[in-house]
């Protein structure tokens, strides 16, 4: 098993989390990590684990199979995409585990999960991150 990009993730006592950057000068956060601060233009960014829970800020559903570089499984199923606000940090874009727009609403509680995305040419499962409605936590 591997992830789409190991540099996006870190282990925390609560489970795997996304890694962002925090500006030591002004407190701005980014995801993924970057060297320069987009808010104060400084260069004092430090790695920081991002919150694993947040609220849905906006969403859509991808209705058609994207062209490459999309590398999803051969059978296309529409997937949810959203922005999730992580309190006092940043709003992160991610796939959603829910793809029915009638079961998504702005403001709903969400939690980070690692989910199967595809199987690579060597037969290894590849995981990516997604946010799930928080009520499903502990399923």
């Amino acid at each position: 098993m591997r992830t789409v990009d190991d540099s996006l993730f870190t282990d925390t006592p609560d489970g795997v989390a996304l890694v962002g950057s925090r500006c030591a000068d002004c407190g701005a956060h980014t995801f993924p990590r970057q060297g320069g601060c987009p808010r104060c233009t400084g260069d004092s960014m430090q790695d920081v684990p991002l919150a694993r829970t947040g609220t849905l800020w906006s969403f859509t559903v991808q209705g058609f199979r994207p062209k490459p570089p999309y590398a999803g499984p051969p059978e296309f199923e529409p997937y949810g995409v959203g922005y999730v606000e992580l309190p006092e940090q940043v709003i992160v874009e991610a796939r959603l585990t829910e793809s029915d727009p009638d079961r998504l609403w702005i403001g709903m509680p969400m939690v980070l999960e690692l989910v199967p995305f595809r199987t690579d040419d060597a037969g290894t499962p590849v995981l990516t991150f997604a946010f799930a409605p928080a009520r499903e936590e502990g399923r």
Binding site: V4, F59, V61, Q62, G72, R95, I106, T128
Partner: peptide, 26 residues
């Protein structure tokens, strides 16, 4: 942006406009 963003199906202008209007109508 890292390759993961395109591979996992997030690099689409169409999604941006869907999410921007969704937020705007809300």
């Amino acid at each position: 942006i890292g390759a993961w963003y395109g591979e996992t199906g997030l690099m689409l202008t169409t999604q941006f406009f869907g999410m921007k209007i969704q937020r705007y109508l809300h």
